[in-house]
Amino acid sequence: MTYLIDRYPCEDSPRLGAMTLHPTPESVPRARRWFRKFIAPYNPACSVDDCALMISELVTNAILYGRSEEEWVLRVEWFREVTSLRVEVHNPGFPAAVRLRRPDASDAHGRGLLLVDSLAESWHSGPSRFGGTVVSFVMADAWPS
């Protein structure tokens, strides 16, 4: 299996990095590690641990709910937007299927977006520019103004 990592260190580009992953369980820890490695040179002031945790949740969801008739990949991208960090996770699933759940204490699953909702400044889901679905989150005050 090949995994692609893009980096755009150019100051003119708001995209700080991206990775393409296969929809396998091994991609979840890989996404955390690669994000930590490639965000480090930008020295964000927000919690990289919180970002890595939210990326884990969104990549897990993308793997579980992404659907395609053909072989597919998921894509994680991160951007600097003035003082904020925005992270996007793209998969070929249906945008309407993304919803915030309020699971019972006995439910084993369903807390990923609830966690993102509690840690991020904001989050969004909708159609991906690659086709399928994108779920993103924003961490405010990631860099000084």
Rank of each mutant, 00 (worst) to 15 (best):
I63E: 04
S122P: 01
S106V: 11
R15Y: 05
G132E: 08
R30S: 05
P23K: 09
S122G: 13
G17H: 03
A105I: 11
R101N: 06
D141E: 14
Y65N: 10
T83E: 14
D107H: 12
L74I: 11
V98I: 11
H22I: 08
A105N: 06
N91H: 12
V48E: 13
L100K: 07
P44W: 09
T2Y: 04
S106N: 01
S118Q: 13
S84W: 01
E121Y: 13
I63N: 09
A31K: 03
A97Q: 15
A45D: 14
S125N: 11
W78C: 00
S145F: 10
F38Y: 10
M1C: 02
L119H: 08
S68Y: 09
A105D: 11
E70Y: 02
V98G: 01
D49T: 15
S56A: 13
V28Y: 04
P25C: 00
P144R: 15
I39L: 08
Y8I: 12
L21A: 12
E71C: 01
W72N: 00
G66L: 12
V76F: 13
L21I: 11
D50M: 09
G126Q: 09
L4P: 03
H22F: 12
K37T: 14
D49F: 11
V116P: 07
A97E: 15
P41I: 02
C10R: 10
T24W: 05
I39V: 14
F137S: 04
L115F: 06
Y3V: 15
M19L: 14
R15K: 11
P44K: 09
D50H: 15
N43I: 06
V89N: 04
E88A: 04
V28A: 03
V28F: 06
F38Q: 05
S125M: 00
C10K: 10
P127D: 14
H109E: 14
P23F: 04
E81K: 04
S118Y: 15
P29R: 05
R129L: 01
I55N: 05
D117G: 09
E88S: 04
E121I: 01
V138D: 07
V82T: 14
